[in-house]
């Protein structure tokens, strides 16, 4: 599990996170939701040790993200950052292969090649694997970076808005892949902008607002109309569809 305790974070004068203490369960898909500027990406970035902690403590599978060796952390969690603009002119397969770096440190073996191939296949990139990244569309590039994170083959997978550049078909395919990975024992934490993907696929939801945890728990508890209404400061309706919540907002 991921344990976050007593985390505060500020950038300049702005307080981004206040007094965050929570645990994220292993073996589940956890969704971080909340309005823009709530601190979702900052929290994920702190967990992934991309941003140094200012106060508090975070452990992932028992590893203190501040103190554990970076290589060991890299074999424990993979991260998809929000901005994945890459200047390098790499082929898709070459990019994905870098996901194996924490495991082989420059001497790839046959099992590394197999993991890369599997990740490419999972993201539907078999036909694109020899193309250069700068020849791809935004969504294809996003999938290439996802495949890189998958190839890292870590117990934990942290994804910052992985659906951002994907169309509906690919978004659904990604969520199915993630559900399958969860069923095989992996733990997934993702920032989601679109609440209905969280409602349909997440096992655990953390709702952040203005740097605080407003609610967290199963989708059923978080997706109550009054909780969601307070979260987004807007009126919405929650119905049930195929046994899961579905949020309707009036456009």
């Amino acid at each position: 599990m991921i344990a976050v305790s007593d985390v505060h974070h500020h950038i300049g004068q702005a307080q981004i996170l206040r007094d965050i203490t929570l645990t994220l369960p292993a073996g589940k898909i956890t969704a971080l939701i909340g309005p823009n500027g709530a601190g979702k990406s900052t929290l994920l970035s702190l967990v992934a040790r991309l941003t140094p902690l200012q106060q508090g403590q975070i452990t992932v599978a028992g590893l203190d993200v501040q103190r554990a060796p970076s290589r060991e952390l890299a074999r424990t969690m993979a991260i998809l950052p929000q901005n994945v603009a890459v200047f390098s002119r790499l082929r898709v397969r070459e990019l994905v292969a870098f996901g194996r770096w924490p495991h082989h440190q420059g001497r790839p073996g046959p099992q590394d090649a197999a993991k890369v191939a599997a990740a490419l296949h999972d993201m539907g990139l078999d036909d694109l694997s020899h193309r250069f990244l700068d020849q791809l569309s935004g969504g294809q590039r996003q999938r290439a970076h996802l495949a890189m994170a998958l190839a890292q083959d870590t117990p934990w997978l942290l994804l910052d808005e992985p659906l951002a550049a994907l169309d509906m078909a690919h978004a659904r395919a990604l969520m199915q892949t993630l559900a399958r990975l969860r069923d095989s024992g992996k733990s997934i934490v993702m920032v989601l902008h679109e609440v209905n993907y969280a409602a349909a696929w997440a096992d655990h939801v953390v709702a952040l607002k203005a740097g605080r945890v407003l609610a967290h728990g199963t989708p059923e508890t978080v997706f109550a109309p009054d909780v969601l209404g307070a979260l987004y400061d807007t009126r919405l309706r929650v119905i049930r569809q195929d046994g899961r919540p579905l949020v309707l907002h009036h456009l």
């Binding site: 970035s45 992934a48 040790r49 991309l50 060796p69 970076s70 290589r71 060991e72 952390l73 890299a74 074999r75 993979a78 991260i79 950052p81 901005n83 994945v84 603009a85 890459v86 200047f87 390098s88 790499l90 990019l95 870098f98 996901g99 770096w101 924490p102 420059g106 890189m148 994170a149 890292q152």
Partner: peptide, 20 residues
């Protein structure tokens, strides 16, 4: 070479792969 190439992918990616 590998380390430099990973650095070119961005600080976040590099750190995520366990590189300083």
């Amino acid at each position: 070479a590998d380390r430099l190439a990973i650095l070119g992918l961005g600080d976040g990616v590099a750190r995520g792969l366990g590189l300083n």
